[in-house]
Write a protein that binds this DNA or RNA. Sequence first.
DNA 1: CCGGGCGGCTGAAACGTTTTACGGGCGATA
DNA 2: TATCGCCCGTAAAACGTTTCAGCCGCCCGG
Lengths: 340, 340
Amino acid sequence: MAATSIKEVARHAGVSLGTVSNVLNRPNTVSPATRQRVLDAIAALGYVRNDSARQLRAGQSRTIAIVVLDVANPFFTDVVRGAEQVVEEAGAMLVVCNSGEDGARERRHLDLLEEQRVRGVLITPVGHGRHPGLERLHERGIPVVLVDRGSGRASRCSVAVDDVLGGRLAVEHLLDRGHRRIAYLGGPLTIPQVADRHAGAAAALAERHPDTPLRVATTNTLTVAAGRRAAEDLLALPARQQPSAVFCANDLIALGVLQQLTERGVRVPDDMAIVGYDDIEFAGAAAVPLSSVRQPRELLGRTAAQLLLEESTAGAEHRHRHVVFQPELVVRRSSDHRRP
Amino acid sequence: MAATSIKEVARHAGVSLGTVSNVLNRPNTVSPATRQRVLDAIAALGYVRNDSARQLRAGQSRTIAIVVLDVANPFFTDVVRGAEQVVEEAGAMLVVCNSGEDGARERRHLDLLEEQRVRGVLITPVGHGRHPGLERLHERGIPVVLVDRGSGRASRCSVAVDDVLGGRLAVEHLLDRGHRRIAYLGGPLTIPQVADRHAGAAAALAERHPDTPLRVATTNTLTVAAGRRAAEDLLALPARQQPSAVFCANDLIALGVLQQLTERGVRVPDDMAIVGYDDIEFAGAAAVPLSSVRQPRELLGRTAAQLLLEESTAGAEHRHRHVVFQPELVVRRSSDHRRP
DNA sequence: CCGGGCGGCTGAAACGTTTTACGGGCGATA
DNA sequence: TATCGCCCGTAAAACGTTTCAGCCGCCCGG
């Protein structure tokens, strides 16, 4: 029962090993009568293919992995859903791994995935994305597609959104609304998305007000809780140094800031404007609907998966591509207030 | 390179196959000198274990799967995080599968997982949880733990929260606040959680007002979009039939309702009170902070994973357990208003 | 009537591990 | 010094597939 193998099926149907395998993999090379006999045997014995053996023979699995920074972040869940669609259509299986912004955990996951000889990996790496784990996958011939990360390297595909532009859009909007003391909240800056959004924001501010620096408050993670703490730090500043607007590295931070400010009686956007990033589903439903930079999340996931499948099938003649999408600013109430 | 096997390592180190395997699995049975030689060879060749072969030999994998109804629902992402902790501590790997409330997809996933001979499955099944897929896993000796679902069956473990009590808490609270025309929003009722919460709500109402029925509006899914549509339907009712309070099967529905009502100028809680379910992180950050029935989400995941690991190691002498947690009502502004 | 081709099936090899039975030294003990 | 264990290490079998070379019988054309 537990050990129903192709061999038992063969015996039960009175045929050879190879024939059963043919029924499974190339049904039309087997005569209808035999085929039926084998299928009956399979049903009678409750036989289920053993994927390990298949993989061992084939040298690779039908599994594709996606490694994200935070499974609980709605941005990534949407990316996952996009990827899922494409992967399942291709008859493969998507496994979701969570690095939790922790390099060591990411590393462990990649090691495990390499041991499993996965067919490919979609990843938003924790750091710069050059660590040996990724390189090794590449050397082994396992395709890797960077998600939400541009890549200078020609050696792999990537799918990204122009984060520098996103940062710029956010800050230009705030400047248009009359703000000048603007703070950027998020971190750690080792996360490239965080750094790029910062770069765009700083550039936009520098162009219009070369002498006004962009205040930066870094957080350890991109979560609601971190946002609350950051807001608290902001409120501790002397009044003169307090910004009139904050641009947050993602919506979770922004929602945390919003909650904390509201709790402390600071009015949004009158006393302080907020712009977030990602435009997750909950941004529009917030206490004060949140302005945010929208990214095409599902499209990001779908495209990444497509590139991966293409590379995995095309093999040597595959040409690496770098797809970059444009973000889009969605203005809602949290920043829709002209500064007097 | 791509095909570095244990055999090549052995040749390179000048030892036999078995010795390399011993170094990997029982390092202390091999002399330090030889061990070092083997380790050097491994490093030099960049050898990585082939998990397929391992599994094939072992007969089962080190992978544990969790099948959830919706990866994008914060309730499940928290359950996943809880399970993840436990599973990783045990040196196994957690793969997340998304059924999307779709029975066929759930079925496909279970088939694939069975082919992979996973070590166990945590699942919140789409329907009643008695379909042949789950039975088959059980017959094959693969442990299954039901998550967020009580189980009448003694044949497997389960971890759940008392949803009937949760429904009751919500409605009793609304009754205390002077409401009487109460509606229950959510669906489909084939999802046991949805049905149980409804049962508790209906019972609570019946006890206090035997002649007042609980109005029910069912949705197709438990998403924000479905909530918006449900609210729209509600508003289309003649004024006399409109409820003064709605209890929603989960927070996503509740947030959708809230958004739509706000958009249509209905004041919450003055014109209509709302109570959600799950108390997801975003509930407190909503336009009107949402009252909600809180469930111990991470604990649910952790406990489920623990039961699974226990069953998987204990084997025959394992006794199935059914853990039930108590929900807790969190009152926030969306229902904090005494009806005149 | 013979040779060739072909459809349908068989049998064995191979994938990379782990495990187990076994062998060859070597030190300790009598 | 001979014998017994003991420690290291070896070789081979087994796990369940897939694939490939080959075999058999049949039909068809010559």
